[in-house]
Simulated scan of single mutants.
Amino acid sequence: MRDLAPFLARGRQAHQSLMGEQVRMYRQGEDVFDREAGQTAPGPQADLYGPGPARVRAVAQATGTEEQAGEREVSLRDYEVALPWSTPLPPGTRVLPGDRIEVLASEDARMVGLVLYVKAAQYGGTATAWRINAEDRS
C-alpha cells in the first residue's frame, strides 16, 4: 500500500487555497435575565474557531424549506463550510448542532454577516478539509 501522506498534504494545501472567506465559529451561551433592566440578554459566547479561513458554499442540491417560527416564515438553506483540516478545537470541545458560524469577510460582500447554524460536523483522516454542514435560518 502506498503512503498517502504526501498526496493528502498537497490536497489539503490545494483545498485551503480555495478558502476565500474569513469566519468565526462560536457557541452561544444560555440567555441571562438582567433583574435591574428587566430584560433577558444573550449569554456569553465561547469561541471555537477563528477568525480564520474557510470556504462557505451553498449545497447545490438543496432547495431550501419554508418553516413557521412563531408568527414568521423562515427559509432554511443548506451550506457546507470547509475549514483547514488541521483546525484545532479548545481541549475537550466538540462541535455541536446549534453552534454558529459567522462570515466575517468574503469576496462576495453579500455573505458578510451571514450566520449559519451547525447541523453536523464530518471527521476523517483522509479528508482534505474539515467539513461542517450548516443552515441559514433567515
Rank of each mutant, 00 (worst) to 15 (best):
V59N: 05
L18N: 13
A60E: 10
G38F: 01
L76M: 09
E102I: 02
G113H: 00
R10E: 12
V23T: 09
G92Y: 10
G38Y: 04
A54I: 07
S138R: 13
P53E: 10
R35N: 12
D78A: 14
V103N: 03
P6V: 06
L8R: 03
V112S: 02
P88H: 07
D78N: 08
E80D: 05
P90F: 07
Y49M: 04
L104N: 02
G20I: 10
R12S: 05
R2K: 12
G124N: 08
M25H: 03
E80T: 11
L104R: 00
R77N: 10
R100A: 00
R77I: 12
Y123C: 07
V32R: 08
A46Q: 14
L89F: 06
L8Y: 02
Y123A: 13
V81C: 01
L4N: 13
Q16R: 15
E30S: 08
M19G: 06
A82V: 12
V103F: 00
G124S: 04
E135G: 14
R137W: 09
T87N: 00
Q28S: 09
Y26H: 15
Q39N: 07
P90G: 05
T63W: 00
A127L: 14
V103P: 06
E36Y: 09
A14E: 09
E66N: 12
G92V: 06
Y123I: 11
L104W: 00
A129P: 06
G43M: 01
Y117D: 12
P88S: 11
T87V: 05
Q45D: 15
V112P: 07
M25I: 13
D34N: 10
A121V: 09
E67R: 03
V118Q: 04
S75P: 05
Y79A: 04
T126S: 12
L76S: 14
A5F: 09
V32H: 06
V56K: 01
R110S: 15
P97H: 01
V118D: 04
R100M: 06
R137V: 11
A37N: 08
Y49Q: 02
A121G: 10
A129Y: 11
T126N: 14
L114F: 03
Q45R: 13
A120K: 13
A58M: 08
N133M: 10
G124T: 07
G38C: 03
L116F: 01
V23I: 11
L48Y: 02
Q16S: 13
R27S: 00
E71N: 05
A129W: 05
Q122I: 09
R57E: 12
D47C: 00
V112R: 03
T63E: 13
R10G: 10
L104Y: 02
W130L: 06
E135Q: 14
P90E: 07
P42W: 02
